[in-house]
Design a protein around this nucleic acid. Structure first.
Length: 272
DNA sequence: AGTGGCACCTGTGTGC
DNA sequence: TGCACACAGGTGCCAC
């Protein structure tokens, strides 16, 4: 489901109900996500939420009794619900707020991650957050940085853009879309991408992610914001999922290839 | 240090 | 209709 825009939309969706509110109770299932749920999560009972941030594809909830780190994996989803909504299949975690609302986490494939960090143990100082590359919207993500970083990688630019040590938040959909916008062939070796192209990459990554956030993210199968709304950026996808269709620029056929066990979509004519 | 392959898990669509 | 298989928005670990 979620790349950076979808996580940002989710974060904004829970913010109004969760920020400055009190967590009355915590509940989680006995099935584990990427890691098992820790009983320490109960430390968040009666905690007051002071901050909610997105870092890469992670959501960090800060309280006076510790931190909650949430990753949505492939199929994770947070919703804000009224207290009397019954649990559904694959609901695995929830915070019951003193307002009566519930923040509930559903994750079909359980590739997500929910971790607790103590008040004196910032998640920013620990894995996985401390190994992440720069935020795409930050000043430290610029053409100079990207060009230097790419020089270390011989693998394809597409796979390299999806590497969270290089830049966070660009997943399988937006990697294809960004490279199409930049007219870069996804199979190009990362260390062969010119500094000029790096400048274009930085600009296009920012533009596309920003536009997607504004449209509520991309809904391919099941993504929805915390309010249940679907994402409309799917209408702006030019290549992802468009195998066999005509390129909107040149009219030639969009191809699908596999790189690192993930599908890549591109226009062989526009992206040389 | 970088890289490819695989693992984690469930649901859905396709082709035989 | 049933079955086998491929594939899906992510990430971490392993051996090379």
């Amino acid at each position: 489901m979620p790349e950076l825009p979808e996580v940002e939309v989710t974060k904004r969706g829970i913010e109004r109900d969760l920020l400055h509110s009190k967590i009355k109770d915590i509940d989680f299932s006995d099935k584990s996500l990427r890691e098992p749920f820790s009983p320490k999560l109960y430390n968040l009972k009666n905690a007051t939420v002071s901050n909610i941030e997105r870092r890469g594809k992670y959501i960090v909830v800060t309280t006076d009794k510790g931190y909650l780190l949430i990753h949505l994996g492939m199929t994770g989803h947070l919703s804000v619900l009224d207290g009397d909504v019954p649990k559904k299949l694959h609901d695995h975690f929830e915070m019951i707020l003193s307002s009566g609302k519930i923040i509930r986490y559903n994750d079909t494939r359980r590739f997500g991650l929910i971790l607790y960090f103590g008040p004196d143990d910032s998640p920013y100082d620990n894995r996985p957050l401390n190994e992440l590359g720069p935020e795409p919207f930050s000043d430290s993500f610029n053409a100079e940085y990207l060009h230097e970083k790419l020089s270390h990688y011989k693998k394809s630019i597409k796979q390299t853009l999806m590497d969270s040590a290089v830049v966070v938040g660009v997943g399988n959909i937006y990697a294809s879309e960004v490279l199409f916008s930049c007219r870069i062939n996804p199979q190009t070796a990362a260390n062969k991408v010119s500094k000029q192209k790096c400048k274009v990459l930085v600009d296009e990554i920012r533009r596309i992610l920003k536009e997607s956030i504004e449209k509520g993210g991309t809904t391919i199968r099941d993504f929805q914001g915390a309010d249940g709304k679907l994402g409309y950026f799917v209408q702006n996808l030019n290549v992802y999922g468009h195998e066999g269709e005509k390129c909107c620029i040149c009219g030639s056929e969009i191809k699908k290839i596999v790189q690192g066990q993930r599908s890549t979509f591109y226009c062989p004519h526009c992206q040389k």
